[in-house]
Every structure is written in structure tokens, then in C-alpha cells.
């Protein structure tokens, strides 16, 4: 079964690409989780939809080189809007996030339906961004996905220490001369990049699961940040492979939702048996005391 999957050249590309996309998401997701910004990722992923639609409307092609910049722009714009609303009104963070998320998403749906009703027949496949379609990854797009994911992974490893410092203790980081604001921006750009490339695999609605859930699960296994990062990537990879295998075996099954269900199951398992914070381990610890 697995051998035949690997023998299929198309499936192989899908697997390699999905693994890479989801590793990038897991890495940067750990930092958004540690900074208690789990749900801003959700806002970004929903806000990518209008960007994709606008890019398509203006160019008329589904070329990734056109669509990704569009997605990146509206994704980033959503974060700026949230920050602007928070700074200039009495609205609280959760309201601002939900507001920006839903309005951007609505604009995206409006544009998509416009394209559908007025399109030139070239538009089919655009809505695969909604719930993701890993199988629709084209081998022509692989180099671009690959390089973006590589940039994200490499940057997180390279900037690990400043990222860790500003996530743990921002004012200390400032006091030793780290430009926390600048690094924060770098981190935001990386997370938007990771989300933009990730939506092809799991879609805008479920993308935030690829960021948060592995981080939450990994935290239950270790108290060390490097280990947490490694485990998060590992968990996302396991879930991706499982999701792809399931949808390869039953072609009517959607890949993205299965990946999400798999990573959630790993998380639930971790809540109980994780050896750092898992609830079963914790109760045995208290007995020892």
C-alpha cells in the first residue's frame, strides 16, 4: 500500500511537498503559540482568500507566482488592520481578530462567487484553497513551494535565539539591545509566508490547526524549546503522511481535514500520556510527592 503510494511519482511530489509545508507551519506555529497569539494565525489564513481572488481577477491565471504575492499581501494587511483597530478603538483583541477574519473572508467569498459567475472557465480549482487539495499540487509549482518553505525553516533555525528571547521575556530582550519590534516583524512575515504556502494542503479554514495543534501537543512532551520545535515538526509530518495515505486509499476523502483530524488525535493522546505535562504523568508525579 505505502510502497505503491511511493511508486506513484505524483503522490511522491504531494507527500514531499506537504511534509515541507507543514514543517514550516509547525516551526513558526510554536512561536505564535508561545507568544499567546494562536488565533491571529487563524485571521491570517482566512484573510488570504481575497488576495488569491484578487490576484486571479487581475491576472486571469492561476499561476502560483501571481497568487502567492496576492495572498501574502492580504494576509499581512489583515494583521495590520487588527493592530490598527486595537490601537485606535476600545475593541478588544478577540473582537478585532474575529472582525477582520470574517470581513476579509466574506470579501474573498464575494470575489470568488463573482469569478464563478463571470469567469472565463479557467477558474476551476480556485476553491480548492478553501478546504485544501494536496493532490492538486502541481509539480511545476513545487520549486516555489519548496524554496518558500526552505526560507521559513532556515530562518527559524538561524534566528532561533532572538525569537526565543522576545517570546519569553520581551522587556529583557529590549534591555539587552535586541530590536524586539524588528524581530517580531520578521517572525510575522515568516508566519504569513508559512500560512500562504500551507493553505494549498489544508485550506484557509483549517490552516490554523497546522500552526497551533502540533505546538500544543509537543509542549506536553518536553520542557525544552528545541525539543518542542522538533516534536512539533515530527507530529505534523506524521499527521500529513497519515492524511495523505487515507485519501490515497479512499480517493473521495479530503486530505486536509484528515490531516487535521490526525494531528488533533496526536494532541489528545499527548494531553494524557505526554511525559512532561500529560495528565496521567502529572497525577503519578503528585502521588510520588
Amino acid at each position: 500500500m505505502v510502497e505503491s503510494l511511493w511508486a506513484d511519482a505524483n503522490a511522491r511530489t504531494v507527500i514531499v511537498c506537504t511534509l515541507l509545508l507543514n514543517s514550516a507551519a509547525a516551526l513558526i506555529g510554536c512561536f505564535t503559540y508561545l507568544q499567546k497569539k494562536s488565533l491571529t494565525g487563524d485571521a491570517v489564513s482566512h484573510s488570504i482568500l481575497p488576495g488569491i481572488a484578487i490576484a486571479f481577477l487581475f491576472s486571469g491565471v492561476k499561476d502560483l507566482w501571481v497568487i502567492l504575492p496576492g495572498a501574502f499581501l492580504t494576509g499581512g494587511l489583515s494583521l495590520l488592520s487588527i493592530e490598527y483597530i486595537l490601537r485606535h478603538s476600545k475593541l478588544k483583541q478577540d473582537t478585532a481578530i474575529a472582525l477582520v477574519l470574517s470581513v476579509f473572508f466574506a470579501v474573498g467569498v464575494v470575489l470568488l462567487s463573482y469569478i464563478q459567475h463571470h469567469g472565463n472557465g479557467n477558474q476551476s480549482g480556485l476553491d480548492s484553497f478553501l478546504l485544501g487539495k494536496a493532490a492538486a499540487l502541481l509539480s511545476a509549482d513545487i520549486p516555489l513551494y519548496f524554496s518558500v518553505a526552505f526560507v521559513v525553516v532556515f530562518s527559524v533555525l538561524l534566528f532561533y535565539r532572538p525569537f526565543m528571547l522576545i517570546s519569553f521575556d520581551r522587556s529583557f530582550a529590549l534591555s539587552i539591545g535586541i530590536a524586539a519590534h524588528r524581530w517580531q516583524q520578521v517572525m510575522v512575515v515568516l508566519s504569513v509566508l508559512a500560512i500562504v504556502i500551507g493553505i494549498q494542503a489544508v485550506g484557509v479554514v483549517l490552516m490554523s490547526a497546522m500552526l497551533i495543534t502540533p505546538a500544543v501537543a509537543a509542549r506536553y512532551w518536553s520542557h525544552r524549546l528545541p525539543v518542542v520545535l522538533l516534536l512539533a515538526v515530527l507530529f505534523n509530518m506524521i499527521a500529513s503522511v497519515m492524511g495523505i495515505i487515507i485519501s490515497y486509499k479512499y480517493p473521495s476523502m479530503p486530505t486536509g481535514p484528515w490531516i487535521v483530524v490526525c494531528i488533533s488525535s496526536i494532541a489528545v493522546l499527548s494531553f494524557f500520556i505526554g511525559n512532561a505535562k500529560g495528565i496521567l504523568r502529572r497525577s503519578s508525579l503528585t502521588v510520588q510527592k
Binding site: F168, D169, S171, F172, S222, R224
Partner: peptide, 25 residues
């Protein structure tokens, strides 16, 4: 600089030595 203790999340995945090493940055 030693910030107020409440200003950070002590649930952060780090050991005592990890935190002290931050001072060497």
C-alpha cells in the same frame, strides 16, 4: 535588567539553565 516576575509566562518551555544563559546573549 531584572523585570517583574509576573511579566513573563513561566510555563515557557525552558529550564533554569536556559534562562540564565539568556544573560550571556
Amino acid at each position: 535588567y531584572v523585570p517583574q516576575r509576573e511579566s513573563v509566562d513561566w510555563d515557557f518551555p525552558a529550564t533554569v539553565l536556559d534562562v540564565v544563559l539568556m544573560g550571556r546573549y
